[in-house]
Design a protein around this nucleic acid. Structure first.
Lengths: 336, 336
DNA sequence: AACGTGGCATGCAACGTTGCAAGAGATAGG
DNA sequence: CCTATCTCTTGCAACGTTGCATGCCACGTT
């Protein structure tokens, strides 16, 4: 147990309140008194009690990051950045996983809020916008990823339609015309996958090609195994394919794996591209072409947005939609 | 803001204390009263105030996980498991990154402790055992990984000597005799790398081979880039090598990358093995032979250990060293 | 009728901190 | 010499919860 203000006060021969003033650095304290108190603080190695401050001030300094899975490279990288950035802002990061389970998402939305954390950054997966909006007035919430909830909730997104269009155009530009996608998730409230699909179709149409349902392979989850399974399915079905655009790098890595299994050369026989720009992709064999969302901007924007909501001196303001940039990162898996 | 006990008490026409009794489920409360209170609780959707409970009870229900880097697959996977297991034990997980910086490690050891969290699980990287032991009596600490601190601090480890020996024997068993290692870190207080090196040398000696310093390539960090650089160095130096045992899967993935770059076939020209069994390795091209430490056991053991220290009803007891199992996972990167 | 017993409910205090408003002392001005 | 002013310090209260001890009532026993 650390020393309390009272113990320090007794040692320094001043009131508790004065010690508090010294600790918080504010108010008028005579230099001499300040020095005496400071010495007592040092001698007893005083640390403010977080629980008492939290109770008194209503602020815990804790922010929750709620993601489907921390073990996923994309969320691992993002969580790492959030941890660093939170630290730089004197916040602590509490992480929770939903596993993509809607019940768990609901629970965390209700449960964590107003309890321990000052705010919540969440990457929803299965919850509908309506459910996300049903907030019992707890701690501020910032969403990551597309939500079809523009103007109703704070959220930070990349322009997924444009990004998917960019990637598809890149593949078309390489002369590929039988481009498949792996990653649609028609069974979920997942606006992200839907928009990437839309961007892909748009680019095909622009090029005068008709999207072929047989080349749009849905997946249940975004793991490597799902990508590998989807790729195998595509090859087994005999659908002619000269490029595969996966909606996540994880899926793409699985697809690469399956292609290698079947003896296909990448990109000679089939080009493979991903989305997310995770470290794995850079060192894949061959290195993976991908869309790199501006992760630093995602983190900064989300925390800025939360900070604005937490600031009691400013007006709450309207929910904001912050769009971050992205970049097409061309590597050997498509470039030949 | 959520309702308080007092508001609920007023609504139900009972005392605050009685409401508290209902909430905590304990004590003697007449069924009728309980029902009335419960209804008031529901109507006001009461949530206990974490700050007040923390202040009163001295328990926050928070556990900190301190790792070098969350973006590293190994720690990402571990953090994910910790988050789930903590959740199952009604604890919340707060993550902090050190980036392998000794100052930051020191700071977190002193700073987080006794402040917000009930306990600390830390994977130290650069700190010496002496510094780790210099604890000002804060929250309980459990270390992950070898520490040369047996009997002085709680820690959870794999038998790294045995694991490295197992892997080296496996490579020897394949007929490889020019086995290099990538991963020693002579400049750090890193007992883990030291023990893996010892296990490797032991196995060589057993086989009548003399460890060759030119085949022991040190690295500064454990990223893919370091593994790739080390592999290139090894090849450029012209040291004959028919197998490379990397002290982490990350290093091994980098080494695979560098081997592919130079047109080497794996495992025909050079076998490559890793350590950690991260998901990436399973889907690498070719899939990576590795040592799979029992991650579930690490997480369970660490939290059990912490729980034991947090339990006020039992005696503190001596610091424990818990050794978890490991398994040699042979895949195509060595098997041919 | 007095007493003990057990079931249930409650009041008080304290955890450590900070906002508020007022107190104490010193100095300057009338 | 008294008061106004300023600088510095302090006591009180409250944040929401729970441990402790006690109060109250009804019932059964002597």
């Amino acid at each position: 147990m650390s020393a309390t203000l009272r113990e320090v006060a007794e040692r320094a021969g001043v009131s508790v309140r004065t010690v508090s003033n010294v600790v918080s650095g504010f108010a008028l304290v005579a230099p001499e008194t300040r020095a005496r108190v400071q010495q007592a603080l040092d001698e007893l190695s005083y640390r403010p009690n977080a629980a008492a401050r939290h109770l008194r001030g209503g602020r815990s300094g804790l922010v929750a990051l709620v993601v489907p899975e921390l073990s996923t490279p994309y969320f691992g990288e993002l969580a790492g950045r959030f941890a660093d950035e939170a630290d730089a802002r004197s916040l602590m990061l509490l992480v929770q996983q939903t596993g993509g389970d809607p019940d768990r998402e609901r629970e965390l939305l209700d449960g964590v809020r107003g309890q321990v954390v000052d705010g919540l950054i969440m990457s929803p997966w299965a919850l509908s916008p309506a459910e996300l909006r049903r907030r019992p007035g707890g701690a501020p919430l910032v969403l990551l990823g597309e939500q079809d909830a523009d103007g109703l909730l704070d959220h930070v997104v990349a322009d997924n339609v444009a990004a998917a269009r960019d990637m598809t155009r890149h593949l078309l530009g390489l002369g590929r015309t039988r481009i498949a996608v792996i990653g649609p998730q028609p069974h979920l409230h997942n606006a992200t996958a839907a928009r990437r699909l839309a961007g892909y179709r748009q680019a095909l149409s622009e090029a005068g090609l008709t999207p072929d349902p047989a080349r749009e392979v849905p997946v249940r989850r975004l793991h490597r195994a799902d990508g590998a399974a989807a790729m195998r399915g595509l090859l087994d079905a005999g659908t002619p394919v000269d490029a595969v655009f996966c909606f996540s790098d994880q899926l793409a890595l699985g697809a690469l794996h399956a292609a290698a299994e079947r003896g296909l050369r990448v990109p000679a026989d089939v080009a493979v591209a991903g989305f997310d720009d995770v470290e794995d992709g850079r060192y894949a064999n061959p290195p993976l072409t991908t869309i790199a969302p501006d992760k630093a901007a995602i983190v900064t924007a989300a925390l800025d947005c939360l900070a604005a909501r937490l600031d009691r001196t400013t007006e709450p303001g309207e929910p904001r939609t912050i769009v971050v940039g992205h970049r097409l990162e061309v590597r050997a898996s498509t470039r030949g």
